[in-house]
Nucleic acid binder design. Sequence first.
DNA 1: TTGTAAGCGTTATCAC
DNA 2: GTGATAACGCTTACAA
Lengths: 345, 345
Amino acid sequence: MTETADGAAAAPTLAEVARLAKVSVASASRALNGIKTQPETLNQVLEAAERVGYVPNASARSLRSKRTGQIAFAMPDIGNPVYTSMMHAIQELARERESRLVLHSTGADAAEELAILRDLRRRFVDGLILVPINVTPQHVEELARAYAPVVVIGHIPATAGVDTVEADSRRGAGLGVKHLHAHGRRHIGFVNGPVKTTPGHARRLGYFDGLRAVNLKRDDRLVEAAEDFTLEAGRTATLRILARAHPDALLCANDLLAVGAMAALRSAGNEIPRDVAVVGMDNSDLTHITWPTLTSVDLGSAERARRAVELLFARIDDPERSPQRVHVAAELVVRASSAQRKVMT
Amino acid sequence: MTETADGAAAAPTLAEVARLAKVSVASASRALNGIKTQPETLNQVLEAAERVGYVPNASARSLRSKRTGQIAFAMPDIGNPVYTSMMHAIQELARERESRLVLHSTGADAAEELAILRDLRRRFVDGLILVPINVTPQHVEELARAYAPVVVIGHIPATAGVDTVEADSRRGAGLGVKHLHAHGRRHIGFVNGPVKTTPGHARRLGYFDGLRAVNLKRDDRLVEAAEDFTLEAGRTATLRILARAHPDALLCANDLLAVGAMAALRSAGNEIPRDVAVVGMDNSDLTHITWPTLTSVDLGSAERARRAVELLFARIDDPERSPQRVHVAAELVVRASSAQRKVMT
DNA sequence: TTGTAAGCGTTATCAC
DNA sequence: GTGATAACGCTTACAA
């Protein structure tokens, strides 16, 4: 093993391995890639590779094979634990497939998302998992002509022609309302995120679905849209509701909003869940961290991420397969923040 | 722009651009890379590139130029918000430098960390920022011979010969103890992480420093090491303390442990901070999410990450510079979980 | 099975 | 300044 001045080993090439094993580079390549080789030469190659500590050069390999061994994950906000859990799931499956994970945080900026789609032409990844926050016609267009396979986590028109994994967040929001009603709440408010976003839109519909299902009248004073899906936005949106109405329960469009809502409720002198029950959405790790622990609608974030990875690799392996739309069910996870108020008989 | 069957545009190469601009590939390359070119040919090239939507192939470029435009970040646990905030900071600075971020979660596994160091020989990144959880002699050895520049966030022997960014967590832990003492607490317990880890070791020393500084006697019944730096481990470790002692305050070696401690304290009937005050470390986003909000020692996680990126790029630009050791100061951020108990006069 | 050789798409080194 | 041309390190036809 040759040494450079600073003690770092110089990277041996396949040619060196071949020379040491007294075979051609082609044979060396085949041997190392598990292509049928005479046991004897196989051993020689393996041994030589071992001796010099051979490791294939990623750039050279991908230039030739047109596979980078990398996939990308682009999501709106690293600070939101939902995306962290998706990232976690993706990273694990990617590792199993010997793929590296390239991370992009888009800051919920549509232009940024489009830039990433266009950047695929650099061919630095084999595919992309994208979580768009709101979808423009341009998205659809760029997706349709995307250079590498893309899987979208979220709702997107079928004309985009890409695989998608969707949560049933509309039904999920309905579950939250029904749960609160069943536990004796009759003035159920809704702290939404921006209505223009895909999840904001769907969850709003689900909230109204839920009200209808339990025969509660819609009261717009109980509904507020936060500026984004963050804690602070949830806090101020909740304060706006409290300034004009008296909810005995709040459904929040995600867990971060719910945490903000809890802070606002308490600062207004409410005890949770005695005075106001709170239900979040996403069932993220935050649910264990709040006090009381947070009831939340599980939208299967890790599951969606896993399905997305599977779809992505399937499409990488077979670009011709027809686009799939996978749905992941929503499920309510009850914790302390929505405890029973009075017994229903 | 030629179209393939499925509507995706075929990636145009530099040769095509050159042909359209009626210049050589060499000139085209120079023009696009901002190397001195006659204005006329420059325009022709730029125009041709624009017309076909030329984008350079990342693999080809890195194979030739030996720069990948990627850096890697390897940390123990995606689930810990400290690392999320580091990731966030790194991603932003990397983007400014037009570098992509490759993510590795090591699961606090030393073997995994070593594997990543060796993997650098694949040359898929220009450098690595590593957060090791505990450092073996093998780490030092592998770091010394690492193929690409590595910056370590954490403490590591100088013989490793790499740039490091260190938090002053020993002093930070001391700050926590002094704060609690100043607010009237006299039975200050310590929920540590594993003592074998670098942070676990340093924070333990800092805790004892703090006790000495305020003339409190060391009481080992008040000290417990959790199995790892997680919420659940913090909860059970705290329960062990409560089974044998009556602390009126707990310093916790990170925020996740503190959240676990709060849960344990409450399940044992304690009110926070009235009965027991709690101080965490890291000053992560969790501090805003707990109730009451969590006093925490800020160890400058984002700042450390930024410094690490700067060091990394500086070394990539000049591999010969001598290794730097950067220190980031600790600072206490007081919130509700450690409110004044009695007035000291 | 194995070796020869042709690229993959760039950038860098030359002469001109 | 520009144009041939030689790498970069690897995979993969194609021949042998």
